Simulated assay, not measured.
Amino acid sequence: MRSWKERVTHMVLFEAIGLALVTPLASGLTGHGVGEIGALAVGLASVAMLWNLVWNRLFDAWVPTRRRRLGQRLAQAVGFELGLLVMTLPAVAWWLGIGLVEAFWLDLGLMAFFLLHALIFNTLFDIVMRHYLARGGA
């Protein structure tokens, strides 16, 4: 089982890298300003960080290995994103002043981006941690 320190490190790095990549991209695609999208992204990231701690802790209990197969990694990423979508859809619609359908499509686009980000990030994070722990890291 991974420690809380490792999970917090994972969460902060995941969200920081994701925000740096998605904010300008979403702003350009939606026509909303970088500030408006950035503020929304920070709010969503705050919810996502809490959900990340809960979801990944649960997932670690269900699949307690660092050598996860692709299907397990996809289940981890999809479960996280679906849970986040359910929690954030109304807030996205309200913040941007758009309908739920438009917010759903925007959230779906963000979900697709973060699914790919999660798949790549989680794989690389586990590889780095395996090497770190093999060298005696705590």
Rank of each mutant, 00 (worst) to 15 (best):
residue 1 M to D: 08
residue 3 S to M: 14
residue 3 S to F: 13
residue 5 K to A: 15
residue 5 K to G: 15
residue 5 K to T: 15
residue 8 V to Y: 02
residue 9 T to A: 15
residue 10 H to P: 09
residue 10 H to L: 13
residue 11 M to F: 05
residue 11 M to P: 03
residue 13 L to S: 15
residue 15 E to W: 04
residue 16 A to P: 03
residue 17 I to S: 03
residue 19 L to E: 05
residue 24 P to L: 12
residue 24 P to W: 04
residue 25 L to T: 09
residue 25 L to W: 14
residue 27 S to F: 03
residue 28 G to E: 06
residue 28 G to Q: 07
residue 29 L to Q: 13
residue 31 G to W: 11
residue 31 G to P: 08
residue 32 H to D: 13
residue 32 H to P: 04
residue 35 G to E: 03
residue 35 G to I: 00
residue 35 G to S: 05
residue 36 E to M: 05
residue 39 A to D: 03
residue 39 A to K: 10
residue 41 A to L: 08
residue 42 V to Q: 03
residue 43 G to Q: 06
residue 43 G to D: 01
residue 44 L to E: 07
residue 44 L to N: 06
residue 49 M to V: 03
residue 51 W to I: 10
residue 51 W to E: 12
residue 51 W to Y: 13
residue 52 N to T: 14
residue 52 N to D: 14
residue 52 N to Y: 13
residue 55 W to N: 02
residue 56 N to K: 02
residue 56 N to F: 13
residue 56 N to G: 02
residue 57 R to I: 10
residue 59 F to P: 04
residue 59 F to V: 02
residue 59 F to C: 09
residue 60 D to T: 06
residue 61 A to P: 00
residue 64 P to W: 13
residue 64 P to G: 09
residue 65 T to G: 05
residue 67 R to A: 05
residue 68 R to P: 02
residue 69 R to Q: 09
residue 69 R to T: 14
residue 71 G to Q: 08
residue 72 Q to V: 10
residue 72 Q to F: 01
residue 72 Q to E: 15
residue 76 Q to K: 11
residue 77 A to D: 03
residue 80 F to V: 02
residue 80 F to Y: 14
residue 83 G to I: 04
residue 83 G to F: 06
residue 85 L to D: 01
residue 87 M to H: 04
residue 89 L to A: 11
residue 89 L to W: 09
residue 89 L to Q: 07
residue 90 P to L: 11
residue 93 A to V: 10
residue 94 W to C: 09
residue 96 L to A: 02
residue 96 L to V: 02
residue 99 G to S: 05
residue 99 G to D: 08
residue 101 V to Q: 07
residue 103 A to R: 06
residue 104 F to N: 05
residue 106 L to Q: 04
residue 107 D to T: 12
residue 107 D to E: 15
residue 110 L to M: 13
residue 117 H to N: 01
residue 120 I to W: 07
residue 122 N to R: 01
residue 122 N to S: 13
residue 122 N to P: 00
residue 122 N to L: 01
residue 125 F to K: 00
residue 125 F to V: 00
residue 125 F to W: 09
residue 126 D to K: 10
residue 128 V to W: 15
residue 128 V to C: 08
residue 129 M to D: 12
residue 129 M to V: 15
residue 130 R to G: 08
residue 133 L to A: 11
residue 134 A to L: 13
residue 134 A to R: 15
residue 134 A to V: 06
residue 135 R to M: 05
residue 136 G to I: 06
residue 137 G to H: 10
residue 137 G to W: 06
